[in-house]
Amino acid sequence: MKLHSEIKSHNYLPGKTMIVLTLVFSMIALTSSMKYKSDFHMSDTADGVKKDSIESVKAFMKVYEVLMSPRCMNCHPAGDAPLQGDDNHVHTMNVVRGPDGTGLYAAKCSNCHQPTNVPGLHTPPGNPKWQLPPANMKMVFQGKSPRQLALQIMNYNLNGHRNKAQLLEHSKDTLVKVAWNMGEGRTPPPMSYSAFVNVWNEWINKGGYAPKQ
């Protein structure tokens, strides 16, 4: 019997800001030619936007609220089991990540999670690509401070091998968008999808700075 030995929710943050987005970074193909960590700080401007560490960090703090919301964080757990619910409890059916993030054996994500949401409360939310980040690129959100999470996202070797352009593009991924369409009864992230895209782009375009803490 291994009750509760999996994951503890580390509430490093006030409950109010503990939120979720799911599976943000797992899906993009590894097409980058980038060999090194990050190109965020290589030029002064990006798309005509001036680097601005204060504004960038400010934007990230909003990004952070979304990423730590249950709709995002539940599929970016610290352990190998996804989380469920607004209280981030360990997924009831004891499912695990598996090497490619799609679950294992008779407990694969798509065995229950359909291409679209199932009607009704507490039914599995749907997405054609439903999965966790793969085992070799776990992209953990749970338990990360704003600084840790920002540095992780900016780090080419930890962010799914995405360069800046790919990161900017990533906000349009179906598994990012799904956070705002999680089926009945689930609290959405704390801002609209378009507001999220704006702060995401602003954070990156203004230099992708990490907060001090």
């Binding site: 019997m1 009750l3 009831t92 004891n94 409360l121 507490h122």
Partner: peptide, 17 residues
């Protein structure tokens, strides 16, 4: 309570010897 999500039953990993 409505269904097994809020009125859960024991699952295999919780069973002692």
């Amino acid at each position: 309570q409505h269904n097994f999500y809020d009125n859960p039953l024991i699952r295999i990993q919780e069973v002692p010897e």
